[in-house]
Design a protein around this nucleic acid. Structure first.
Lengths: 199, 199
DNA sequence: TTTTACCTTGAACGATCGTTCAAATCCAGT
DNA sequence: ACTGGATTTGAACGATCGTTCAAGGTAAAA
């Protein structure tokens, strides 16, 4: 009757990530998780330790995905800023129709969790800072391609972009109009080739 | 031993709002709620119907607070834009040290909830749109005070500000530096007296 | 084929979840 | 002071929560 062949770690983490991403940490029950990843409690706890342990792996997996997506857009391009804009549209608009949630899983996590789960909270913050650093690296490349003035502060700009992305993806949950979001992203990347004019 | 004097509806909703705001819907247990609002299950269910019913009242109360705060800042001023900026700083920075969460309770709610609680989700979205409309009204006043060009699209600008506020308050959860957030708000309201340059 | 080390299984545990309701209590009207 | 309708109380309910562990199954070594 049982199957009991060894589970595929990669597949399991993917499925767990999608469920956690959609429902959040608290609203995801181990029972539901068991069905989705097709594992029994004993196996789950032997492999991941706890509900928190599996969530931690899910967070890491999500961040890896995000960084990979960012890399795909920006490598082998002579317009890092254009690539960044494409990345924004891809993440904000396309993924609304395919991903478990329009929102960033890391933002959902820091939004939901409190000090009652301080380790997971800290881990989500850490991963967000890694992504922000990655944005900064791309802005640095933009400088080297002459898309950004040497006098620009990439740290500040990366922080600003990160904040905008959080806002866009949260706002995306309040509307069904892709056109609206497209316009908002165009507003962020105002001038060709770049940027929030101002400063 | 018991007290059994009639409960104060206003106070109870305030306390419930603060707990829901901090913990979110799912992580707030009725047991904890009972302690905080000092009511027994029977009374709660007689007055509010369910955990969802009380949460609905909390959402409404939160939105009322937000609108009142916005009104206080903007009435009796000849610089609606300046008032808007003050409002942003007050909400993003000050409330980090006083409020249950740096994040907007409505954004936390649309972030956490799924179609499993579609009524509450819809209500949170509705209240967000009310606030966005209120932002638009202030931008209209800014036009009348000559702070904003008549050609500006207030609908679009209000949407943009709403998105920025969502982003700022989410980002606020990732840092302890008030200076950073102050700078970001200054960046949003770039030119004296106003606005994201560009369009 | 038998042994052995590892992995999976699924029933079961105590704790906690949201909710109900009969009994106790309060307070306004007489 | 008494009554009667409204309100609060707190024990209790079934369901579900995250987690544990003895038992059973698998696969590679001997």
């Amino acid at each position: 009757m049982p199957k009991a062949t060894r589970f595929d770690h990669q597949t399991v983490v993917e499925k767990a990530t999608n469920l956690y991403w959609e429902k959040g940490f608290h609203a995801t029950s181990m029972r539901h998780l068991q069905e989705v990843i097709d594992m029994r409690p004993g196996s789950i706890y032997a492999s991941f330790g706890s509900k928190e342990g599996l969530f931690r792996e899910a967070l890491q997996h999500y961040a890896d995905l995000s960084l990979a997506q960012l890399a795909i857009h920006t490598q082998n391009t002579d317009s890092p800023v254009g690539a960044l804009k494409m990345f924004f549209k891809s993440v904000v608009i396309d993924s609304r129709h395919t991903a478990p949630s329009s929102m960033c899983m890391l933002v959902k996590t820091i939004s939901e969790l409190t000090d009652d789960n301080s380790e997971l909270l800290a881990e989500a913050k850490r991963l967000l800072s890694v992504i922000e650093q990655s944005l900064q690296d791309i802005l640095q490349k933009a400088k080297e391609h002459g898309e950004l003035s040497e006098s620009e502060n990439t740290t500040r700009l990366a922080r600003y972009l990160q904040m905008q992305l959080m806002g866009l993806r949260a706002y995306a949950r309040t509307t069904d109009s892709d056109a609206l979001l497209t316009q908002m992203i165009d507003d962020i990347f105002v001038h060709e080739p770049f940027l929030l004019k101002s400063r």
